[in-house]
Design a binder for these strands. Sequence first.
DNA 1: TTGAAAGCGATACCAT
DNA 2: ATGGTATCGCTTTCAA
Lengths: 343, 343
Amino acid sequence: MNIQTITIKDIAKALNLSYSTVSRALKGSYQISEPVKEKVLAYAKEHNYRPNLLAQSLKNKNSRCIGVVLCTIPNSFLGEVINGIESIASSKGYLVIITQSNESLEKEKMALDHLTMRSIDGLLISVSTETINTDHLKTYHDRGLPIVFFDRVCEGLPTHMVQSDNEGGAYELTRHLIQQGYRRIAHITSPTHLPMTRERLTGYHRALKEAGLDADPDLLKNCAHGGAIVEEIETAINELFSLSKVPDAVLAASDRMTQASFQHLRALGKSIPNQVALAGFSNFSAPDLFSPALTTVVQDAFEMGKRAAGLLIERIEQKHKPFTPERIILPVQLKARASTGSV
Amino acid sequence: MNIQTITIKDIAKALNLSYSTVSRALKGSYQISEPVKEKVLAYAKEHNYRPNLLAQSLKNKNSRCIGVVLCTIPNSFLGEVINGIESIASSKGYLVIITQSNESLEKEKMALDHLTMRSIDGLLISVSTETINTDHLKTYHDRGLPIVFFDRVCEGLPTHMVQSDNEGGAYELTRHLIQQGYRRIAHITSPTHLPMTRERLTGYHRALKEAGLDADPDLLKNCAHGGAIVEEIETAINELFSLSKVPDAVLAASDRMTQASFQHLRALGKSIPNQVALAGFSNFSAPDLFSPALTTVVQDAFEMGKRAAGLLIERIEQKHKPFTPERIILPVQLKARASTGSV
DNA sequence: TTGAAAGCGATACCAT
DNA sequence: ATGGTATCGCTTTCAA
């Protein structure tokens, strides 16, 4: 249903004008005389005229909507990204439609299909952990849908991407752990096909190498679902602690992984940071309320949303012009706290 | 833009049929012969026909979209509510459009205007703390927009509402605190014009009365912005602790209030639960990771979303039929933890 | 069973 | 400066 009071036709009839004149007057066209403009505007205001956006979209072939696909909304990091997206989008007059993939490729495709059927002007996406093949995105991209990746980006599509400095963050975290005296640092990672995972791994390795430490492959645990399934992380941690040489520190790759690791380490009765240190990528609103307070690398989620939305809208509004895909790397910030012995 | 491959007209031309026949065949109308139906469907599938939902909406005067207005997306409770809403909506073929009011009446009105301009079939709303007057909602409701309230409901509109058992929750929390030996229990509340606030207050008073305790008005602190502004809560707590008779327990009304109270009590160096106990309404995913673990009343956020969406869609699809406004009260669950001395 | 045509609301080209 | 009209893609009434 559409809560519409009057249409252009109503105004035209009431004022004895043609549809086109009213339409033009409403848009402030220079070809319409002042008196007519004023009359139309006044009548429109008085009768609370509101254009039918559906009809406009149908005619103009644009909807001033942008679609967002991400794993899950109840997530401290992504929630802030959404806020960043909305701040830019609404200032430019775009409506944001958010859909969730729940880490499922199937749902990601469905979300994409739905969004495009509803006519979106562009897409912002952080892919699911199952998204190895990107043909579904490529199809739409090739047909002209502007796409910008954020957070979990994908290689292979010539478009913008906005992400955190994953390598730098993992490097800082690892170096910090080493400085604190930890030597057997385990790393719980997301699926390896994600660039993000490889970048973090690179930072981790670089810090180890710089310190002259060996990278023990036993200390690397891969979580195929990126932490969506708690058991996965519990298993990883259990395996780590059944090694002959157990780790003395755990580096977790995401919000959920950090939290799940925390919970499971406590359940196992491990004392943090004495028996084992814990640090991770995370955007909890209050990591200092945990016991002990969590050492984290904080990403600028809001800025990520803003940048991604900005680039997308620029693409949408300059569709004709050629462009060079940009890859934006946002700096992250190490927050050393008690969980790594920093007091 | 619309990623459309072919239209009904294309199919009609290709198969030498009229538009109407194709349209009917696509909908599986009984008036179309099997062979024609099959031909059309096959051709449509082969050429990846996808209906233009904008055009359909314009014609049918429905959009199969429902709008949601809430304070803020990055919120553990509301995030889960959204998931509940989506689970029902998507199963019934509705797209969910989420907008935020950020506790501002102005933004709430704007969100409402935008949503209705985009043609939503119905609205789910949890009002902002500033929403005392509900004329903006009434206007749309009177014009036929189905509305269902959730969480922060409003009186005065003859429509469904879905909320938690606020009175019961506050009662349980207060009774628990009393049982644990606390006697001067402060209550930090949301704005008093919200039914939710009054209900919680009632529960709090009922428990006090039952235990034969006086309700000291000094122990009641009202936060006009419902916790959106941290300073507000800090001030409330500071005032409580500058009383001649300080409280020995604090009952917080929401997620954000609970967290902010926690943080500020710690900043003040108050030992929880020895110097002061803390308990509150909250849906943190891991209240046991706090130090000390938080005693909370947990609301069934997902169920709230499901019920609200279910009622709304029912209203949308049976618009003609008269209905009796329902008020659904969802049970809550007390989780006693260390912050109230329960260890 | 199928087709023709009007119309949803807005826009823009072509006239005047 | 203003009006007439076709069009966007789809649905539906009326006719055949």
